[in-house]
């Protein structure tokens, strides 16, 4: 990841600040940076979203394609994640440099979405054992400014909210051969229910306290973070320690509580903005990349 190098005194300043609940940019320990969310930014996708969280900039595109259901789950569709660390974000990602980080994030997303019920996969099934929708979720890192995981999960949720999958019908003739018919009306779509899609809250341990939405500088001061996926109802669906340090059991309990609280607030804010955008409909002025 784009690493920043800090002097010992700078780190100390950050650590003391976190202790006093006043971070370098004036935030408290549980405050997020100001986030901008926009959906439907790339027209060749079934759904897309762009999220800017401080200097972190994420673009997610969802493409729905037809595929065959997995053997273990014949009546469900599935999601595929791919994370591309573009060299736009940092020159270190050039060539294969970003691959490791990309796989790590993709694996984490699989884990977060592994919980049944996060997305209604049954609704993606067209024809049991034969056809289903596969949602390819492609995440692009445009800029890294700390707290990638949270920003990516917000963008994924927004993109899934924005996803529209064409309605299809299965016609069966007398001989039993099946035919798939696509609806003529391009606006005749199904939408996904994203109420239970979790968001990731990363809590970075700095000194004796933990902060949410760490900047790159703060990440450099943190030895270990706990990544928690929280649904809008406050249920935890995934937990993962990242970083090379270790955590006290007590602080893990505290972090889970904080994660639940912050996660709920995050979902409320996100849902509000998605609904607001939706209610504006076509009257909303699209900003895209010219903002």
């Amino acid at each position: 990841m784009a690493a920043v190098c800090l002097s010992e005194a700078e780190k100390l300043y950050i650590v003391h600040g976190v202790q006093e609940d006043l971070r370098v940019d004036g935030r408290g320990c549980e405050d997020y940076r100001c986030a901008e969310v926009e959906t439907d930014v790339v027209s060749n996708t079934s759904g897309s979203a762009r999220v800017k969280l401080g200097h972190t900039d994420i673009l997610v595109g969802v493409k729905a394609e037809m595929g065959t259901p997995k053997l273990e789950k014949p009546d469900e569709g599935y999601l595929e994640f791919f994370v591309d660390c573009s060299a736009n974000a940092t020159p270190e990602f050039e060539g294969r440099g970003g691959e490791e980080l990309g796989t790590e994030i993709a694996n984490t997303l699989y884990r977060v979405f592994s919980s049944e019920g996060s997305v209604d996969l049954k609704s993606l099934c067209i024809n049991p054992r034969e056809h289903c929708w596969v949602l390819y979720v492609d995440v692009l890192l445009l800029e890294c400014g700390g707290n990638l995981f949270d920003a990516i999960s917000i963008a994924v949720k927004a993109a899934l909210f924005n996803t529209r999958i064409p309605k299809v019908r299965v016609l069966e003739d007398e001989e039993g051969s099946k035919e798939i018919e696509l609806s003529d009306d391009p606006y005749d779509c199904i939408r996904l229910n994203v109420d239970d899609v979790p968001c990731i809250v990363t809590l970075s341990k700095i000194g004796y306290r933990h902060v949410v939405d760490a900047t790159l500088q703060e990440e450099a001061c943190s030895l270990a973070s706990l990544l928690i996926a929280v649904t809008s109802k406050g249920a935890l669906t995934c937990m993962k320690k990242i970083g090379k340090g270790s955590l006290d059991p007590e602080s893990i309990f505290e972090m889970m509580e904080t994660g639940k609280r912050v996660g709920k607030a995050l979902h409320i804010a996100l849902q509000k903005i998605l609904d607001e955008e939706e209610s504006l409909g076509t009257t909303r002025q699209k900003v895209g990349f010219l903002g």
């Binding site: 884990r111 977060v112 592994s114 919980s115 049944e116 019920g117 239970d196 979790p198 706990l226 996926a229 649904t231 109802k233 406050g234 249920a235 935890l236 669906t237 995934c238 937990m239 993962k240 320690k241 270790s246 955590l247 006290d248 059991p249 893990i252 309990f253 889970m256 509580e257 994660g259 639940k260």
Partner: peptide, 21 residues
């Protein structure tokens, strides 16, 4: 000996923090 947790990796159907705790 240090009473420090060095790895937490889990996931699945959602649960309360209490349950995970």
């Amino acid at each position: 000996a240090l009473n420090q947790v060095s790895a937490v990796l889990g996931g699945g159907r959602g649960g309360d923090p209490e349950s995970w705790g």
